Each structure stands twice: as C-alpha cells, then as structure tokens.
Computed example of a mutant assay.
Amino acid sequence: MSSELHNPASTDNIKSAEDSWRLNYVTGNLFSCPEDEALAHCISEDIRMGAGIAVMFKKRFGGVPELKEQKKQTGQYAVLTRDDRFVYYLITKKKASQKPTYDSLRQSLEDMKSHCLENGVTKISMPRIGCGLDQLKWTRVAEILEQVFKHTDISITVYSLPEKAETKVMNENRRR
C-alpha cells in the first residue's frame, strides 16, 4: 500500500461523489441563475404549460413543437438546448389538469440524472418542483432529490421568490 493513502494532506483534495452533491437554496428569480447551469421544472405530457412557472419557461425558451416531437411520457424528461445549456422538462403527469405523484417525479428525476451524467451536467437550477400548483410537499420532494442525486457530483440550486404579504393572503384564500 502506498504511503500517500495514509498521508492526510493527500486526501484533502479527494471528495467522494456523495460529498460533492449539494442542495442549495436561493431567494430570487430562477432565470437570474448563472448561464452555465441547466434548468429544470415540471410539466405534463400534453405540454400545455399554461400556468405557474411553466408559462415563463414557454415564453423564454419556446420549443413546444420540439418538446412534442420527443414524445416523452410521464416519468421521463424532455430537453431543449438553449445558449449552451440544457433546459429540462420533467414530465410528472399525463394532463395539465392532473396532479403528479412522488413516484412520477422520482422517475423523471432519475431519467434526467442519466442525461446529466452522460452530458457532464454538474449544476441544475430549479424552482421548488411539484410544490406550486401541483401541491406536493417540499420536504418529500427534497428527500427525493437527495435520494436521486446523492451519489453524483451534481449540485442543485432551488430558487424561491420572496413571498409578498398580499400573495400569502391570496394563496390562503384561494379555492381549488
């Protein structure tokens, strides 16, 4: 055995993939993230993108016909390449009017992870996926993210908008 393995100085720069994975939180606009980071969000198989942050993704990146051509199903991801970055569309439900399951979210994240590993993606920015209009619980979603990505060197930054008092009151009074 080499003496280097026992020299603490030589192991300082060695990180296991489990140590490299990170889940970071930022308050701010998702679209202000560094341009070298991939983006991800959830959509339905019908690619409607008519509500929530999906509307902003549709306006900013277009590509609806390109996404439809990929013929992806629930539990998979579709992807666009824009300005040297990947924009991932996690397909978590069949129709826009439905709700995703934690299982469909996990499957689509696993599918996206494979693409990330094959293409050298190490940074992904996303909103609190599945937790807006789709009403999944963030604590469960964060656990799934950790389970899916913990043995990779992919770090994920989750963006949340600052909550305004009026928005909070409106959300509390909203009927669905």
Score class of each variant (00 low, 15 high):
L105Y: 04
K93I: 10
V87S: 06
A78M: 06
E118T: 11
Q76T: 11
R128H: 02
Q98K: 11
T122F: 00
L90C: 05
C116D: 03
S108Y: 11
L136H: 08
T74P: 10
S104Y: 12
I129C: 07
T74K: 13
S97K: 15
V121K: 04
Q76H: 14
T92P: 06
T81M: 12
A96K: 06
L136I: 14
V121M: 07
D111F: 15
Q135H: 12
R85I: 06
R82H: 13
H115V: 06
V87W: 03
M126Q: 02
K71W: 02
Y89K: 02
K123N: 14
H115Q: 00
P100G: 10
D103N: 14
Y102K: 12
D134V: 12
G130R: 02
L117S: 06
L90N: 00
V79K: 03
K113M: 12
I91P: 13
L136K: 08
T74A: 12
Q76M: 13
S108R: 07
R106C: 11
V121H: 05
F86E: 04
K94H: 11
S104V: 12
E110F: 04
V79H: 04
L109K: 03
Y77E: 11
Q73C: 08
K123W: 04
L80N: 05
Q135M: 15
M112I: 01
Y102F: 15
I129K: 02
S114D: 15
K95Y: 09
M112N: 00
Q76C: 08
I124H: 00
D84W: 02
Q107R: 14
Q135I: 11
K94D: 03
L133H: 15
L105P: 03
P127F: 06
L136N: 08
L133N: 15
A78Q: 01
R82W: 07
G120L: 10
L109F: 08
L90W: 07
V79D: 00
D111L: 04
